[in-house]
Design a protein around this nucleic acid. Structure first.
Length: 414
RNA sequence: GGACAGGUGGGUGAGCUGGCUGAAACCACAUCCCUGCUAAGGAUGCGUACUGGCAACGGUACCGAGGGUUCGAAUCCCUCCCUGUCCGCCA
């Protein structure tokens, strides 16, 4: 959530910065108006309540002194009505304000390039040269079907489209990758955590999936519970409504979970293969830091993901997302794109974002800075999407005869 | 899922025959005093959010959540959630 005080104070600069995310200034104007109106009404309400409290205290005194209480009682009753109606106004304003405030995205950093979609993203650097093939490299689905590693039809039979089944080498590789990644991250100082795949509404609100992106989530019927679209949600929410000690920070976590996404807006995209599934495995990194440390931790997380790819000898590049491609809660995001020789393209395999205090404000995650409570910064990034890593290994390590070599570092894991 | 018991400040835990309780006491924590030794004693402070004020210091709300009764509720009533124990079920 935006800092509404900042919106009130630096209105023009916030409007300017949010243009990168194409937020209309009318929305911000309305938000500011509601914020100011609410403050005013709230202070009027508090004045009435203060009066009521003072007079209420007279009540037992009057009784003791056997004074007539009928006038006092009448006053109190009248004031009570005033409070009730004022309260109604305040509640309405609060509701409206919340609706607006929760739907406005985070403010991009100054270094974030302008642009409207992925075509305007900026490549930062490339790591490792793509391998030269002396044959036509195949796409992963072809390799997968031929090796009986991936069964697309039966995935659909079990659930629906965009589900698949891993068998044989793929199943083993999937498991090996998860273990390898968790170990890799642990060595970099990220503590391994194992969390629920189902979370409540509050958790989804805190990290920003709700209220705006309900269509992307699988909801449990009859309950206010959702399947997680990423481990970022439970990992970040671990500390929701808590005030942390300064010594606890930074908190660096890594965790494996399955992830579930409806892919509502992706009709027709990546329908072939395993790139875009409703259920996929991911090892995630989440950090909770003091504000002044978050840029450093951000770089550490990007480096961790990039080094992981390098250790698997997978060619990739780092891309700075432009404003239009930036996620709802992010101030800055670096994507890692892995080279897929079958497709002849770099494809997203990891995404590291700094949300600064955006999620922390919603989730009320703070820390004691001396006497004061300050909001922390939260960061999240895929270590790597496991399924896409599997694909990348298949395509990059394929041999002329259609078999797949195994990356050196994974050999101990199989 | 059934029965009973509970949910109070960082922790333990009083209050729960409605007003003097935003909340005793103890522990933990912080600062200070005393003491020279690996201890103890004493003083003060110590919830959160919003809000007024340069500040000192005030105001409002919050005793699991949401409603209700009342001039007034942590205290009474209703609904929900959660925890504990026993039973049932199960990896």
């Amino acid at each position: 959530m935006l800092d509404l005080k900042r919106l009130q104070k630096d209105f023009d600069s916030v409007v300017e910065k949010l243009k990168k995310k194409s937020v209309k200034d009318e929305v911000l104007k309305e938000l500011k108006r509601l914020f100011i109106a609410l403050k005013e009404k709230r202070s009027e309400l508090e004045e009435l309540q203060s009066e009521q409290n003072k007079k209420s205290k007279l009540f037992p005194i009057y009784l003791k002194e056997k004074k007539d209480i009928s006038t006092l009682k009448k006053e109190l009753e009248e004031n009570k009505q005033k409070i009730a109606s004022k309260q109604k106004i305040v509640k309405e304003l609060e509701g409206e304000l919340e609706e607006y405030a929760l739907s406005v995205p985070n403010i991009p950093d100054d270094e974030v390039p302008e642009g409207k979609d992925e075509n305007d993203n900026i490549e930062i650097k490339r790591v490792l040269e793509p391998r030269e093939f002396d044959f036509e490299p195949k796409e992963h689905w072809e390799l997968g079907e031929r090796l009986e590693w991936i069964d697309f039809e039966r995935g659909v039979k079990l659930a629906k489209s965009r589900f698949s089944v891993l068998k044989n080498g793929a199943a083993k590789l999937e498991r090996a990758l998860i273990n390898y990644m968790l170990d890799f991250n642990s060595k970099r100082g990220f503590d391994e955590v194992c969390v629920p795949y189902i979370v409540n509404k509050e958790s989804m609100l805190s990290t920003g999936q709700l209220p705006k992106f309900a269509d992307d989530l699988f909801k449990i019927e009859g309950e206010e519970l959702y399947l997680i679209p990423t481990a970022e949600v439970p990992l970040t929410n671990l500390y929701r409504d808590e005030i942390l000690k300064e010594e606890q920070l930074p908190i660096l976590m890594t965790g494996y979970t399955a992830c579930f996404r409806k892919e509502a807006g992706s009709a027709g995209k990546d329908t072939r293969g395993m790139i875009r599934q409703h259920q996929f495995d991911k090892v995630e990194l989440v950090s909770i830091t003091k504000p002044e440390d978050s840029d450093e931790i951000f770089d550490k997380m990007v480096e961790c993901a990039s080094d992981l790819l390098t250790s698997l000898e997978l060619p990739h590049r780092l891309v700075m997302l432009c404003g239009g491609d930036l996620g709802f809660g992010a101030t800055k995001t670096v994507d890692l794109e892995v080279w897929l020789p079958g497709q002849g393209k770099y494809r997203e395999i990891s995404s590291v974002s700094n949300t600064r205090d955006f999620q922390a404000r919603r989730a009320k995650i703070r820390y004691k800075d001396g006497k004061k409570n300050r909001l922390v910064h939260t960061l999240n990034g895929s270590s790597l999407a496991v399924g896409r890593t599997l694909i990348a290994i298949m395509e990059n390590y394929q041999q002329k005869d259609g078999t797949i070599e195994i990356p050196e570092v994974l050999k101990n894991y199989l």
